[in-house]
């Protein structure tokens, strides 16, 4: 389990990193925390002639808050975001999802941007980004652009980032008013990829009617997915427990999770509906207290 030979590049600016990606094209890959890439390289399941290690790129690190968004630099460590009070206050859903990523040793190395760009459909951060409608900032020698979360995740381990583009940061919207959030997942063991998981966010008006709702799932498709049917069923209502159960059932019914080694699609549907009910219930409960 030794990686095939590669050249290691250690740029110190985004411009240098982008230049390397432009130069080497599909022979290059960005290396962030290495928690997914290095095992794949060691198993020789993938190989690149050039690794562009962005660890030293200072402008990729850091968390900043504006009125309506939380910006997380791509190379910010997951552990840093997990323990950041600003993150917890601005985007509670992100803070609640982070502890579910692997184990603390992994989060001490793994980066927020790395997980998003790796785009494993069973991982937590892509689903949070999709659920909240995050905006991705990409840079290349051609310039910078923004990509909406709805357009970002294009398939298992694939994103809208072009070969020569590097993910610079991600802006998570900050929801205002009476809001609540829920995150729930089921994994074989503590820290494993989820068999199924749900992220939910709701905002209520003064009469407890849902004015805004977002439900995303992990582990049930080729990409993170929104449970649109559940959202539609709840928007504008002040649901009781039975209505939440019904919405979760409807949300799950529209999805067709696949079988794999660890769970059948039928199992994922059963557990997914339950998790959706749990996460939504928790989110609504929290918003009502707010």
């Amino acid at each position: 389990m030794k990686a095939a030979p590669f050249d290691h590049h250690a740029p110190e600016t985004v411009a240098e990193a982008a230049a390397l990606l432009a130069e080497f094209g599909d022979e290059a890959k960005v290396l962030a925390g290495g928690q997914s890439l290095l095992p794949l390289l060691s198993l020789r399941l993938t190989r690149f002639e050039h690794l562009v290690d962005v660890h030293r790129v200072a402008e990729l690190h850091g968390i900043t808050r504006t009125d309506d968004a939380l910006r997380v630099g791509a190379a910010t460590l997951q552990a840093e975001a997990e323990h950041d009070a600003v993150v917890a206050a601005a985007v509670p859903l992100l803070a609640r999802a982070l502890p579910h990523i692997g184990h603390f040793q992994i989060r001490n190395r793994g980066t927020v941007g790395g997980s998003l760009a790796h785009a494993d459909p069973a991982s937590e951060l892509p689903t949070v980004a999709l659920t909240l409608g995050a905006t991705f900032e990409a840079a290349s020698v051609r310039g910078t652009r923004e990509i909406a979360a709805d357009d970002f995740f294009t398939g298992t381990w694939s994103t809208a980032l072009a070969e020569d583009e590097i993910l610079v940061g991600t802006r998570f919207p900050v929801w205002a008013g009476r809001t609540g959030y829920g995150f729930a997942e089921v994994a074989r063991r503590h820290g494993d990829f989820a068999l199924a998981g749900v992220a939910a966010a709701v905002a209520l008006d003064a009469d407890d009617r849902i004015t805004r709702v977002a439900v995303g799932m992990l582990g049930v498709g080729a990409t993170p997915v929104r449970a649109g049917a559940a959202e539609a069923a709840l928007l504008g209502t002040a649901p009781d427990a039975a209505a939440v159960t019904e919405a979760a059932r409807a949300g799950m019914a529209a999805l067709e999770p696949a079988d794999d080694l660890h769970a059948t699609g039928a199992y994922r549907r059963r557990v997914g509906a339950h998790l959706m009910e749990t996460a939504l219930g928790a989110a609504i409960e929290e918003a009502r207290r707010g």
């Binding site: 095992p39 198993l43 074989r188 063991r189 503590h190 494993d192 080694l261 660890h262």
Partner: peptide, 16 residues
Amino acid sequence: PLTTTFLDYLVPTAAE
């Protein structure tokens, strides 16, 4: 064989 890494061959950890 389908379980040739610790991603798929699940050994118990302290948490279990």
